[in-house]
Write a protein that binds this DNA or RNA. Structure first.
Lengths: 339, 339
DNA sequence: TTGTACGCGTTATCAG
DNA sequence: CTGATAACGCGTACAA
């Protein structure tokens, strides 16, 4: 546990001032001659000097810490997203403080407070369902907040999301055109705005095709494969005539397909299943799963780009971006099997 | 973007010195009278004062940041673990800087450096396969490093892991006793020490039962359901006579079960499948999956406890803890179906 | 019980 | 191009 070298130590060894060392460290071009620069770099490596972010942050009142607050870490879509955001930020030299609110508003607010204490440069937030615009006001003034995936109702912050309504509408319409009349909607939690958007697409697709939808075909369930299994079994207890399942998420669809195997229904032949998310497992599954995808990579890119833009121009008006999902039609919803 | 209040501002409003404010904030009992305490707290709320961790960290040379470096964020076992560790640390007042090395040593070392720059109080590390004890030496002297799940060969750091050998041995032995003679081992990557431990358990269980194991029954695959599907199909291309699959992870087992459905084999009747991890989906799956579990909660508890202990006593000798897995025998490996 | 004064390691400012 | 010096906001002896 030897004490670590400081700028002053480096300066002394290189026989320059601490200001010069600082200039070298920050790569301020033209502020320091090539020769002294080398001398300083040499001293840095001799002393095994490590930059102290803490001191720099205090002095410049600007940390390089980005807060990342999310409601759930059990859904692979979110964790892959986090991984990608994390990597992109790291490449830009930012560190990420992670927090998981577990769908608990109080906990989320606590974490936002933590970010403030740490002087987070910005906060990326995927909020709990009960988060309103007002809940964010307390933080927005200090550091920019960028919300993603889950709308908070009013948009005073930047928001990057997915056009869920359209994707659900498109999927359902296509199923109707393929001849399905008994189409179920499975998954999501009751209070979810996102679910409401997808469900509305499902409903409108019915109505625009002059088809009645049935309340008993709508089921809630948690975000897990086993919840999808349970919901699917429940669905077929209610009604044996369903021929298509529009699932709220891929993991729910995986569960549904597992349950359908068990119920003796051949997915892609006797019954269609669709998902949402575009997980990489969807393609390799048997049969391959039809799903609405916004590539996680693309989403992460948008989020990080928006963040960087916002850091440059803090006072620009908030931006709302809705990404269009691409629907991969695969074997789980084969056309023509349902005439 | 109004400037935030400082201790000095609070002191001025409460008509006390900054030292008194500091004492109130840090809850140093007996150092300040109840009356002034209230005055200070009042001023804090009036000014909407927020504690500045950065300044505190610089002054005391002790951050409250814990670095969490992990190799993979796509496996639910790890993400659930992270979520739990994160929550426990937050409860103790620590913030977590997350980094994902993506199985890349260079990237991992970069992140460890980042942690050092941020003066991390400690680092929790689930290392890449090619990490050796020497790779950690550079960081260990500065802040304690606690490794988990993946052994690094030599143990100069604290380590919390799972007794993989024993669990795999127990599972395989039981399958042998149930009458299986053609037992495959699926999953894991070639260089994985952890996989070697589990595989050794599988091999030794064969040998102790005077049973030959077959090299063609051993397959590598990535950590995903679709990789499990591919590997299982490959296995049955090689040999139709396998009656049991010992999978390296639950997600691989889920994939295997999906593939087996497709191949027309009834899991739990004609063929046995076992997993590793004890994911919550294992129980709800159809049929329910036999799996070796070390409860994530328990593991997280051990890791955090070890961390806290280490912070208290930095100079105690490193501790290695191996947790014993509990095997849940479920329908996917029903006894008696293979006579 | 309260106040004063200084230092943590860096960066910004300005003068040379 | 380089150097001296003063901040940043908080913690902690030590003095009162």
């Amino acid at each position: 546990m030897t004490k670590r070298a400081t700028v002053a130590d480096v300066a002394a060894l290189a026989k320059v001032s601490s200001a010069t060392v600082s200039n070298v460290i920050s790569n301020r071009l033209g502020k320091v001659s090539a020769k002294t620069r080398l001398r300083v770099l040499d001293a840095i490596s001799v002393l095994n000097y490590t930059y102290n972010e803490t001191a720099a942050a205090l002095r410049s009142n600007k940390s390089n810490i980005i807060g990342l607050v999310i409601h759930d870490l059990s859904n692979p879509y979110y964790t892959e997203l986090i991984a990608k955001i994390n990597r992109k930020l790291a490449k830009k030299g930012y560190a990420t403080i992670l927090a998981c609110s577990d769908e608990n508003l109080e906990s989320q607010q606590g974490y936002l407070h933590l970010m403030k204490r740490h002087n987070a440069l910005a906060v990326l937030l995927c909020p709990t369902w009960d988060t309103t615009s007002e809940h964010l006001d307390a933080w927005r003034d200090l550091s920019p907040t960028i919300t993603f995936l889950r709308p908070t109702g009013s948009h005073d912050s930047d928001f990057i999301g997915i056009d869920n309504y359209q994707a659900a509408y498109d999927i359902t319409s296509r199923l109707v055109r393929d001849g399905h009349t008994q189409i179920a909607f499975i998954g999501g939690s009751q209070s979810s705005r996102l679910r409401r958007q997808r469900l509305q697409g499902w409903k409108d697709a019915h109505e625009d095709a002059a088809l009645r939808w049935d309340e008993t075909h709508i089921l809630y369930c948690a975000s897990s494969m086993s919840a999808g299994i349970k919901a699917t079994r429940e669905l077929f207890k209610r009604d044996q005539n369903v021929t298509a399942l529009v699932c709220y998420q891929d993991i729910v669809a995986f569960g549904a397909m597992n349950a359908l195997h068990f119920l003796g229904k051949k997915v892609g032949e006797e019954i269609a299943v669709t998902g949402f998310d575009g997980l990489s497992d969807a393609e390799g599954w048997l049969p391959s799963l039809t799903t609405a995808e916004v590539q996680i990579e693309v989403l992460a890119e948008h989020i990080v780009d928006r963040l960087l833009l916002r850091l440059e121009k803090p006072d620009d008006p908030p931006n709302v971006t809705l990404l269009h999902a691409h629907i991969h039609w695969r074997n789980s919803s084969l056309y023509g099997g349902f005439e």
